[in-house]
Nucleic acid binder design. Sequence first.
DNA 1: TCTGGGGTCCTAGGACCC
DNA 2: TCTGGGGTCCTAGGACCC
Length: 421
Amino acid sequence: MTNEVFALIDCNAFYVSCERVFNPKLNNKPVVALSNNDGCIIARSKEAKALGIKMGVPLFKVKDIIRREKVHVFSSNYTLYGDMSRRVMNTIAEFTNDIEVYSIDEAFIGLTGIPGDLLKYAHKIRKVILQYTGIPVSIGIANTKTLAKTANHLAKDDESFNGVCSLLNLKNIDAVLSCIEVGEVWGIGRQLSKKLNMHGIYNIKQLKDAEDSRIRKLMSINGLKTVFELRGTSCLPLEEVRTTRKSCCTSRSFGQSLKELADIQQAVSIFARRAVERIRKEQLLTSSVTVFLRTNPFDKKNKYYFNTTSIHLSKPSNDTIEVVKVASNLTRKIFKTGYAYQKAGVLLSGFYPEGEEPVDLFSKNSTIRDELMVAIDKINLRHGGNTIKIASEQLSGVWAQKKENCSPNYTTNIDAVLNVD
DNA sequence: TCTGGGGTCCTAGGACCC
DNA sequence: TCTGGGGTCCTAGGACCC
């Protein structure tokens, strides 16, 4: 047992809660939020869950329930969700610097050494987040991050906890853990659950008590860490500083499938531009560009085609014009006529911080190009992301995404700010 | 008709080297 | 034709997360 204490703060049905903040009529009603292209359900209110709408199901499969039960449906509005996330994280940061922002709607915090009643403290955090941002959260407290996740799961599952659950100093912890399926554990997904079930391990207690060597064989090194954490030995520290990313991918499904090389090159050009803009914001240079495209894997009538190709840049770059050109050429290499393409993407990897890239003896300095990029970024920042584009993007735009019911950007667009009459 | 997007890590296997 | 052992590096694929 370690003496460390962690809490996981997780926003309840985050995207739905964001919508509710600006539209209180949605309270106590079934509400769902959709993935890009209005494809799948990715957030559900309690009421929507109760109707049997499962996480991740394609929208078309639950259309009937949605119509019958008058479920409110929202296309994803990441501008709004991102801004609300920032507000929640800033609120948490007012309580402690020991914070790891784990995802858009979750943060771990360190509570080691905090005096007094931690349950009370957590309830206070919860109250203040709700008060400052309008977002309800659940909090799980335990000696390891994995157990804090489990505690959070319990807090969400059982209303009697009132949003906060602690597994610290719990005498009958085994009784609790034996009631939770192994697949609920953080780090154990569908495949591992199936495998563990086949070996007679169904609940968390059984997993916790399994032999190390057996675990190692079934689930590899990370699985063993997970089991140690379930036993109360912390193996996953709080990661307060975000490490620099290792890859950056921009990809989309098309609103309708594309057959022409020119259309796909247009899409890929846009993906490449966005990806480069992102790494440029982080002052990174990429040394590898990958393009992939594929047909619809769910379409059983037509033959599936997927292909991908990469190129290593002899001189790392974050130059939009150069990367777009490279990506466009790669697209031509793997494009085959006769297929209806449904998705494409650009992946950048092998990053160097600007100024730390290996020097190529034969390359000349291209400061003019660098200045051009700075100018483009400035203009796009001031006038909107699509003000300056690369010529190869300027085609028909036949592949626009579906986004049928998107809320306004209440917090980032002055024209969308709510009026109080 | 309609099935997301963006990440990380680990492992197995092949290529290659001495 | 026989055909070792040990190491590194890279890649593809598979698992997980949100």
